[in-house]
């Protein structure tokens, strides 16, 4: 009998294993903070895809973080699988959260600039949830360039770790990939797609 199943869902593709890249990234930052720079790929690739192709191809296929949450919450059963509260999926909250992330990101860039300019010394710490300073000195082994390079790495890793922790919390409380609802990168790429899309393609209700 011919199977009605879509072959796409039967056979795994190379990009279905990108959760390993996410895990490796987080692990590398634990041993040498300069690896945090690789995280720029997780920022640039989705933006390039949305700007060039006008799609959320990164979220749809290549997001290792989403896959990791899907795996932990789904196969490993670490999620309550409850509906996310309505306010968390509202545009107001999503756009507000994106703005908040932007502000925090630029504050991190400002701190990096201060270290580059010599106005501040390097802080060998990772800031979790924009508040808690975690000692992370074991991951710093010096840099060939300015200490600002390492300061950016600490700051960037803080952003990545914070969003991973928030993603894990939403995964446990709600559905495995609930982080996707308020993920600042997802919101930003969707906004780019909206801006790029012909006006007739934006509908408010599915026919």
């Amino acid at each position: 009998m011919k199977s009605t199943k879509n072959p796409k869902n039967q056979k795994k593709r190379w990009y279905d294993y990108l959760w390993m890249v996410e895990l490796t990234y987080m692990a590398l930052g634990f041993f040498n903070i300069l690896f945090a720079w690789l995280g720029m790929l997780f920022f640039c690739i989705p933006l390039i895809i949305s700007l060039v192709k006008g799609t959320k191809g990164y979220c749809n296929r290549y997001c290792g973080r989403g896959q990791l949450f899907g795996l932990l919450g789904g196969r490993f059963g670490l999620s309550r699988k409850k509906d996310i509260p309505r306010w968390m999926k509202s545009r107001g909250f999503r756009y507000g959260f994106l703005l908040f992330f932007f502000v925090m990101f630029f504050q991190m860039l400002w701190n990096t600039y201060l270290v580059f300019a010599g106005a501040r010394t390097l802080r060998q710490a990772v800031t979790l949830l924009w508040t808690f300073k975690l000692p992370w000195h074991w991951a710093y082994h010096g840099t060939l360039f300015s200490p600002g390079v390492a300061q950016f790495a600490f700051g960037f890793y803080s952003v990545m770790l914070t969003s991973t922790v928030l993603g894990l919390i939403t995964m446990v409380l709600f559905k495995p990939r609930s982080w996707c609802v308020c993920c600042p990168m997802g919101t930003m790429t969707q906004l780019i797609c909206k801006a790029k899309s012909p006006k007739g393609d934006i509908v408010t209700e599915e026919p």
């Binding site: 869902n9 959320k56 979220c59 749809n60 296929r61 989403g66 899907g70 999926k89 509202s90 999503r94 990939r177 996707c180 609802v181 997802g186 919101t187 969707q190 797609c193 509908v203 408010t204 209700e205 599915e206």
Partner: peptide, 14 residues
């Protein structure tokens, strides 16, 4: 699908 609230993550399509 409620297209107004959809975040286009693609979990459904997957």
């Amino acid at each position: 699908a409620d297209t107004d609230l959809c975040v286009a993550c693609g979990c459904c399509a997957r």
